[in-house]
Design a protein around this nucleic acid. Structure first.
Lengths: 197, 197
DNA sequence: ACAGTTTTGTACTGTCTAGTCAACAATAAT
DNA sequence: ATTATTGTTGACTAGACAGTACAAAACTGT
């Protein structure tokens, strides 16, 4: 007994995620957002409430997007352990230094834009980071089982170190450091890892 | 034959640097800036021209601030090589996870805020990053001479790797990852470095 | 003392922003 | 067909923002 919606909420949210990911929160105006989502002001506020709420939903959606069937799920396929991790890093650096519209991890952008001062953003980001870290940690444990890493290394620290390198190189790329330099710095990390055994 | 200035330009610029460093470019309103600088609109536009120009000057000033007599100059004192680098990283992480007003490297904030889309900002940041990387590279070369690192490692890649870890852990801290986790990830890197010999 | 010059303080401008509102359109149950 | 209910639309509001204009103030050389 009411007028049906003319757009798909999930799809609109995906578009919103894409814009926020690409441009950040503050730098995305409502007009940008509406244009990307393909809806108009009234529908937007009716369905999503506010720019902020949409942003928070986009963050958790990103988390799902990355881990469920996304890039992180490839860690268990192919050659597991260090090779898979290295492949993931290379793919990440390629996306960061390439000319795709969406560059780098949404969470790094969100972290830096809010600098931990927004509790809700922080919580959403931290939840996503935890999921990613867990997946990487699992890969490192596989690497241990495969004998690619010695059994005494702390897998949690190692996982965090790997993520930090990826994120750090991401920021370096945005600072203007050339792609090849970033690639060889990443390679250096894996060379060091391999030499542990 | 004219009225003298009532404020010190250098000191005002230092204050401007501090605010931009702490709050970022967009998130610093002109009122914030003027309050921090202790001057008023007219004087500001007379002396500094615009918010943007002031920001660019603040960036290069930061570079001087860090390398000339600042934290990076400590690399050559104390125990040079890896211990000095490790001390620098620990100090950085302490500043990042502590409760000081100014947290982390200004260049990481600037990089991420503009994402390489502003050529002038990019240039200023890259120049500063180059200086920092050179200092770290020198420390790594010292480490090689001292036998702390094998002679075959690529010192440039290693320097970039170290910086990336610092920056990455910085972003992780802002994402909400606990301090101890960051510390042990940093320690992991140095443990790996030491085991190379 | 006064002319010339620069700084200073403040009111103002135009633009951009997120969010609101009310008229109008489209559906489903009766 | 009517009515209740929800969705859509575009004009509107209120506030924040960077930057400007200009008069008043303060200083220096003569």
């Amino acid at each position: 007994m009411a007028r049906p919606r003319e757009f798909d909420e999930e799809q609109a949210l995906d578009r919103a995620m894409e814009v926020f990911w690409r441009k950040g929160y503050r730098n995305t105006s409502l007009d940008d957002l509406l244009e990307a989502m393909g809806i108009q002001r009234g529908s937007f506020y009716n369905t999503f409430g506010s720019k902020r709420k949409t942003y928070l939903r986009a963050l958790t959606r990103y988390s799902d997007f990355m881990t469920d069937g996304g890039p992180y799920s490839e860690l268990t396929q192919q050659e597991p352990g260090l090779p898979a991790l290295y492949a993931l890093l290379e793919k990440y650096l390629a996306s960061v230094t390439g000319d795709s519209l969406v560059k780098g991890c949404f969470f790094t952008h969100a972290s830096k834009e809010h600098r931990g001062s927004d509790p809700e953003v922080k919580q959403a980001v931290l939840a996503g980071v935890d999921r990613m870290q867990r997946l990487i940690k699992e890969s490192i444990e596989v690497a241990q089982e495969e004998g690619q890493l010695p059994p005494e290394v702390d897998t949690s620290s190692m996982a965090l170190l790997f993520m930090s390198v990826a994120w750090g190189l991401h920021v370096m790329a945005e600072a203007g450091v050339p792609r090849e330099d970033l690639m060889s710095a990443g390679a250096q990390l894996f060379a060091m890892s391999r030499s542990l055994t």
